[in-house]
Amino acid sequence: VEKLELDPLIKHPLQNRWCLWFFKNDKSKDWADNLRQITSFDTVEDFWAVYNHIQSAGKLASGCDYNLFKDDIKPMWEDERNKTGGRWLASFDKRGGKGIDVDKLWLETVLCLIGEGFDEESDVVNGCVVNVRGKGNKLSVWIGDYKRDEVVLKIGRRFKERLGLPPRFQIAFEAHQDTIVKRGSSAKSRFTI
């Protein structure tokens, strides 16, 4: 069985087609112009071909992001499927993020999404983002509906578990509509776990 699964002629289909986007912060351009689609894939083999071809997240310049979203969803609040959504956010500031391997955590996040690791809740998961910032990297999982508390919490617990974060490290859930109207640098958290 194992041998058959590794047959190089058979590609393993994913449940969803995923699109990888790259954001580079160029202040002379509009936000949306800095966001570019790289490619999409819908098999395990094609995912690795993409992953091994691109710069690893940890080597990106500060201000860059990778966004991995289901193919029909744009990585922005304005998209119909994100409008009433939110994100689970893991922020690694300089102090708390010491020794954190952003490449490893980003890969774990991506594998969890493309492998439908959120079980029945996977349908509510729209995508994931890594923000590379000098003051501290951020990882997030975007969810399509912030009002379904139980679903939101299940996804958050799984995300934290898959990242292997210690119990005292908290991740926070923010509704996009709160992020849009935020004052200062952080939006109100609806949950922390």
Binding site: L6, H12, P13, L14, Q15, V44, E45, F47, W48, Y51, N52, E108, L111, C112, I114, G115, E116, G117, D119, S122, R162
Partner: peptide, 18 residues
Amino acid sequence: GKKQYDRTFLLQFQPDCT
């Protein structure tokens, strides 16, 4: 059914980069 793959399964397809 849903095409679900755990991390171990997915990782075995990672080409050897060493």
